[in-house]
């Protein structure tokens, strides 16, 4: 009888998890604001909005895996570098063999290997993920520069460029279609599979996950693998969109991914997360970038304002979290 009472009162105060919905609220507010202020500068045109989605496709895709990484209490700083390296490999293989299949295999293999190495460093050698992936980031980015001595590699294969970058299907850019596909897969894995729950459990309480018979190391390795593969695919999309491989692709993407995922309601300390939130978080960041450019801010001003907006958004979601007490 007494327990009934508890469930009732707790339900009342605790069931609304504001931090999860914050990103949607912030998104709507920002969007409305930009529509009013920048409406006459073309913010609301279909062209502009589709463009925003195209530009954020890579971050969005990496943020799917990023949600798993952060929800399991880990962090992966290699994603930007992996994207660059994968783009380099893909364009080099295309240049030498013109085989799309071989190029994809080689690009994704890079993602698998770097994810595996990250996972093993973190689980078997017990290196904190921040340090392990920071080191790996440097190694991979350096390799991307070294492989052609920082020269860009153009891609002449138009089929590749169309499918993975500049094409349209039924009026929608392929980049948006790829994003949708990855999100469908991500949402299903995260919410519907056992692996998804185990990811959250490892981030929420590693000890108890272990006591429940979950193979913690295995989960972590798979999460890093996923992150590597998704980043490699993002690199393929970068290559297709730019019709070239360049070592500088994805610079700073690791930070954008973390920001998008956390804005989307995933806790930095692990244990909670939302894949759809990460998508909205990525798009929100894209919209902000776009609006700042339309508003005619200089690149220095853009950097500052973007920083302020991210901090404010995170503060807001924290505030609403605190009120629960």
């Amino acid at each position: 009888m007494q327990s009934k009472e508890i469930s009732k009162s707790k339900l009342f105060f605790g069931s609304i998890e504001w931090n999860k919905y914050m990103v949607y609220i912030v998104f709507v507010i920002m969007f409305a604001l930009f529509s009013i202020v920048l409406g006459d500068k073309g913010f609301l045109t279909q062209n502009n909005l589709i463009n925003v989605l195209r530009q954020t496709a890579m971050i969005s895709i990496m943020a799917v895996a990023g949600t798993f990484v952060i929800a399991s209490g880990q962090i992966d700083l290699t994603v930007g570098a992996v994207a660059a390296m994968s783009a380099m490999i893909v364009s080099l293989v295309l240049q030498k063999t013109d085989s799309i299949f071989l190029a994809l295999v080689c690009g994704l293999t890079l993602g698998i290997s770097s994810g595996l190495i990250n996972g093993i460093l973190v689980t078997k050698f017990r290196i904190p993920p921040f340090l392990a992936t920071m080191g790996m980031m440097s190694v991979i980015r350096g390799s991307a520069m070294w492989i052609t001595n920082t020269a860009a590699v153009p891609i002449k294969n138009m089929t590749f460029n169309k499918v993975f970058g500049i094409g349209n299907i039924g009026g929608l850019p392929v980049l948006i279609l790829w994003t949708i596909l990855f999100y469908i897969v991500g949402v299903i894995i995260f919410n519907k599979t056992i692996f998804g729950r185990h990811t959250l459990a490892v981030g929420g309480n590693e000890v108890s996950a272990g006591y429940s018979g979950i193979k913690i190391d295995k989960i972590k390795i798979i999460v890093f693998l996923m992150s590597g593969v998704f980043a490699a695919f993002a690199g393929i999309l970068y290559a297709g969109r730019m019709q070239a491989g360049r070592f500088s692709f994805g610079e700073g993407d690791e930070m954008s991914v973390i920001a998008a995922v956390v804005l989307g309601g995933t806790s930095m300390s692990g244990g909670t997360g939302s894949v759809v939130g990460a998508l909205v978080g990525s798009i929100l960041m894209g919209v902000i970038n776009n609006a700042l450019i339309l508003a005619g801010l200089s690149s220095a001003q853009q950097t500052i304002v973007r920083g302020v907006i991210i901090v404010v958004a995170v503060v807001l979601s924290n505030l609403s979290q605190k009120q629960k007490r």
Partner: peptide, 24 residues
């Protein structure tokens, strides 16, 4: 040894989730 961020049901079945067609 419960995972605080997960629901009661998820905790009870942690490690041996029931599935249908491969999904939880």
């Amino acid at each position: 040894s419960l995972v605080p961020t997960m629901s009661i049901a998820e905790n009870i079945f942690l490690g041996e989730e029931l599935t249908r067609n491969g999904f939880r």
